[in-house]
C-alpha cells in the first residue's frame, strides 16, 4: 500500500493535534511536518533540504504570512505538491485567490474529519475536492455573480425588453402595457443601468444571448 506523506500547516493547536491524530489512525497516511506557521514550515524544510510530503493541508489564516501568500512559495519549493486549503473562509474572493495561487482543493473547516480524509484520498487519486458550498461559490463566480454583475431585471423591465426585441416603439409599448411613454422611458433607463448597457441594441443583444435572467 502506498503511504502518502501529509504535512499540515495550521496555527491552532487543537485543530492541528486532532488532524494529526485522525490522520495517523489511517495506515495509508504518514503525517510529516506539522507546523503552526508558514515560516516555521519553510524553516523546517530548509533544514530537511526539501519538502518530502505529497499533500499539504494549508490553513489560510496564519500568523504573519497567510496561507494565500505561502502558496506560490510552497509550489516553488515543490511544484508537484498538492496543496489542500483547509479554511473557515468560504468567500468567493478568498477561494478564487487560493485556487489561482495554486491550491488544488479547498475544504471548509465545517467539513467533518471523515470528509477531510475523503478529500485527501480524492486528491491522491489525482482529483480535486471542493466542499459543496465552496463549489457553489466557484460556480456562481463562473456564472457572472449575482446582483453585482446584475443581469436580473424586474418583470416589467423584462416585458418591455421583450417588446423592444420585437421591434416595438416606445409609444406602441406604452399603449400595449397601458402605461405612459414617460414610464416606459423610465423603465428602460433603469434597465440599461442594471444591464450595464448604453443603448437598445446592446440590451437586445444580451437578451438574445440569454445573459438576462
Amino acid at each position: 500500500m502506498k503511504i502518502t506523506e501529509i504535512c499540515i500547516i495550521e496555527d491552532h493547536k487543537i485543530v492541528r493535534d486532532n488532524l494529526r491524530s485522525y490522520l495517523e489512525l489511517h495506515e495509508e497516511f504518514k503525517v510529516g511536518l506539522v507546523c503552526g506557521s508558514a515560516e516555521e514550515f519553510f524553516n523546517e524544510v530548509k533544514h530537511a533540504n526539501g519538502i518530502s510530503c505529497e499533500i499539504l493541508l494549508l490553513d489560510i489564516g496564519l500568523p504573519k504570512m497567510s496561507g494565500i501568500e505561502a502558496l506560490p512559495l510552497l509550489l516553488e519549493l515543490k511544484p508537484e505538491l498538492n496543496i489542500i486549503i483547509l479554511s473557515s473562509y468560504e468567500e468567493e474572493d478568498m477561494i478564487l485567490k487560493a485556487i489561482c495561487n495554486g491550491a488544488c482543493s479547498y475544504i471548509s473547516k465545517k467539513t467533518s474529519l471523515k470528509d477531510i480524509v475523503d478529500a485527501i484520498r480524492v486528491v491522491i487519486q489525482g482529483g480535486s475536492y471542493m466542499s459543496p458550498s465552496i463549489a457553489r461559490e466557484i460556480i456562481n463566480h463562473l456564472m457572472g455573480g449575482r446582483v453585482s454583475k446584475a443581469t436580473i431585471l424586474s418583470e416589467r423591465q423584462k416585458e418591455i425588453l421583450e417588446k423592444m426585441v420585437d421591434g416595438k416603439t416606445y409609444t406602441e409599448i406604452s399603449t400595449e402595457l397601458f402605461i405612459s411613454v414617460e414610464t416606459v422611458r423610465s423603465h428602460i433607463k433603469k434597465m440599461y443601468k442594471v444591464l450595464h448597457v448604453n443603448n437598445k441594441s446592446e440590451a437586445i443583444s444580451m437578451y438574445l444571448k440569454g445573459q438576462i435572467k
Partner: peptide, 24 residues
C-alpha cells in the same frame, strides 16, 4: 471580523474535530 473568523472559527473547528475524535 478576521480575528473572529480565524480565532473563533478555529476554536469551533477544533471543538468540532475534538468531538469527532472523541466520538470514535
Amino acid at each position: 471580523s478576521s480575528d473572529l473568523h480565524d480565532d473563533v472559527g478555529s476554536i469551533l473547528t477544533g471543538l468540532s474535530m475534538q468531538s469527532q475524535m472523541m466520538s470514535l
